[in-house]
Simulated assay, not measured.
Amino acid sequence: METRKVQLTGGSTYTISLPKRWADEHGIEAGRELSLEPNGDASLVVRATAPRNDRRATARIGVDGYTHPNLQRTVEALYTVGFDEFTLSSSGGFSTAERRAVTAATAKLVGLEVLEETDARIVLTNMLGNDGESVRQSVLQLEYVTVWMHRNAVTAVANADADRAAQVIERDDEADRLFGLVNRQFHRALRSMQAVEQLGFDRPTLFAYYTTARQLERVADHAERTASVARRLEDPTAVGSLDDLATAAHESREVVTDAASVLLGGGSVDQAYDAFTARDRLLDDLDPLDRALHDGSAPDTYLLGLVLDSARRTAEYGGNIAEAMVQLSVQAQND
């Protein structure tokens, strides 16, 4: 890092000199206009090329020889890192199966659509704007979907309700798509200070939204796992600790919602500390329940042990959200 002293020119203008090596590398000469981007963290970004608000990040990548799963992973990666438009090219042309693989990947990502297709290339474009409101709304919707999935998965277990379990499993893709959108915005902000400014958040707040979304997506995964267990149960009522297990799962969900309410519901940081307390108490309570299931002989005992493990993980994910809320609070108090 280099330092410069601020000079006063003409009695009213502050000036600093630019590093000569940097200026030479970017063709900076006298009279050249530079772009200055003030940021909320007291930094000032100097760019050799003036940014345009309507500039779209584009990419082009050759995918010759890619397997169908790797084609899908490439589409997901290009979307996640923040490209607004990208082109996949194949010198030998795309087969019908390869086009289906690209289309399947596109269907999993919010706002992504096929813009153009030829024999040798596929162009995809993001149709959504890049703003903070879309991040917040996505996390709010993700919380709603996750809580719905978790509540109904536990009900499906308690009643061995395969139909309800199937409904839960179907919604996991929705949770994945919502997290994917938040993940994309987060990675855009890592690549560009201008992207942070467009979102309207400071970086600690954006990270809190990302962390919350990541943990909610993991809770949704465990809700899907719990629902999958419900489809395999024979007679869960034969397990004497079923009611205690359902209560524990409910309490694990409350840890998550209480912690997330600090960011999403305007709650105070005290709710995050309360979530820590509830998490620790629940984890202690799960140990004797775990032993009871381990010692049981009913056919469904092992499967209900998987549900208990998901309840434990859910409580831990709620604790991770609470930790992010406390970190955000202490940063805000000392900025």
Rank of each mutant, 00 (worst) to 15 (best):
V6A: 09
G10D: 09
G10E: 09
G11E: 11
G11L: 07
H26I: 03
G27A: 03
G31L: 05
L36I: 13
E37A: 12
E37N: 13
A48I: 03
T49A: 04
A50S: 08
A50P: 07
R56K: 15
A57E: 09
I61A: 06
V63N: 06
P69M: 05
Q72C: 04
T74K: 05
A77K: 09
R100S: 13
K108V: 10
L109R: 13
G111F: 11
L112C: 13
T118A: 14
V123T: 15
D131W: 04
D131N: 14
S134G: 09
R136E: 09
A153V: 02
A156V: 01
A160H: 02
D161Y: 00
R164P: 00
A166N: 06
Q167V: 08
I169K: 05
E170L: 11
A175K: 00
G180Y: 08
N183G: 11
F186R: 08
R188C: 09
R191W: 00
S192D: 06
G200C: 08
G200R: 12
F201M: 12
D202E: 11
D202G: 12
L206T: 11
F207I: 12
Y209I: 03
Y210D: 12
A213M: 05
A220W: 04
D221C: 07
A223T: 02
A227Q: 00
R232A: 15
E234L: 02
P236L: 03
P236N: 08
V239N: 05
L245D: 01
L245E: 02
E251A: 10
S252A: 15
V256H: 07
D258R: 08
D258I: 01
G266F: 03
S268R: 12
Y273S: 13
R281E: 15
D284L: 04
D290S: 10
G296A: 14
G296E: 05
D300E: 02
L308Y: 04
S310A: 15
R313N: 13
R313A: 11
E316C: 07
E316N: 14
G318M: 05
G318F: 04
A322L: 07
E323Q: 12
V326G: 03
N334F: 06
D335C: 12
D335H: 14
